[in-house]
Simulated scan of single mutants.
Amino acid sequence: MDSAPSEPNVFTKNYRRVKVTYQYYLDYVTPYMIQRWIGTYVLIALLLIRIMVSEGWYIVCYTWAIYLLNMFLQFLTPKFDPSLEQEYENESIEEGTSRMDENDEEFRPFIRRLPEFRFWFKATLATFISLICCFIPFFDIPVFWPILVMYFIVLFALTMRRQIQHMIKYKYVPFDFGKTKYSKNNA
């Protein structure tokens, strides 16, 4: 019996090479946030132009928009939900196991449930897949598109109202603009 390790087959070698190359380019584009989002917006424009010119694939567009709305809500939501933490604190107070006082407010930075890079990556991938689906006749299901648009507007308004109320109630701001920025000169 030959106990020497066998060489990986051609498929495994090529798969590893593609995987390493893919990761290299992801690592390369990570610091270029503005350029990444510009590329995504160009892809979104191509998708919307395709849908408007062909006058079809409204279900694909609607599904894509609902997915982006879901991801945007995850982007706005903190990783550690304050409403769940407050529930846990109330339960522990009732059980008598709480050691924290009302004055024990510690600083917690805003950590997103869905980080910006993953949001960009998923949005770009979803847009690319939707663009490909817009060239497949199977996905061109006839629907009355104004109803889909109205339903999406209502869904967007209701979910954003609920998210904004949650942000006001638990006093967190998911964006950096408007916050005080400190530099070396100010210190």
Rank of each mutant, 00 (worst) to 15 (best):
G39S: 13
P78G: 01
T63A: 15
L84G: 02
N14Y: 11
R16M: 11
V60E: 08
L26E: 14
Y25A: 04
F119I: 01
V20I: 13
F110I: 10
Y28D: 12
P78R: 03
A65M: 14
Q23D: 12
E94S: 09
F119W: 09
K122P: 00
M71H: 08
Q35W: 12
R99D: 10
Y15K: 09
P82S: 03
D101F: 02
T77P: 01
E55C: 06
V42A: 14
R36M: 09
Y62W: 14
D101S: 14
R50C: 12
W37D: 05
L47E: 11
I38D: 03
Q86Y: 05
R16P: 00
W37Y: 14
I44T: 08
E85F: 01
M52F: 12
T97W: 02
V10C: 03
W64K: 04
Q23Y: 04
Q23H: 07
A45I: 08
K79L: 12
F107S: 07
Y24M: 11
Y25V: 15
L43S: 14
L84R: 11
E102G: 00
T30R: 15
F117I: 09
W37T: 13
N103Q: 06
F80E: 02
Y41K: 04
Y25M: 10
R108V: 13
Y32E: 07
F110A: 06
E55I: 06
M52G: 09
Y88K: 13
A123Y: 01
K13Q: 14
E91V: 04
L114W: 06
L43W: 06
K122I: 06
W120T: 02
T63G: 14
V18E: 08
R16Q: 14
F107A: 09
R36Y: 05
E106C: 03
L68G: 07
Y28S: 07
D104S: 13
L46F: 14
M33Q: 13
V10Y: 08
E95K: 12
R36G: 01
N103A: 10
E102D: 13
Y32M: 11
I93F: 00
F121C: 02
Y62G: 07
V20D: 13
I93C: 02
T12C: 03
L68T: 09
I44E: 08
F72Q: 09
T97K: 11
T30G: 00
A123P: 00
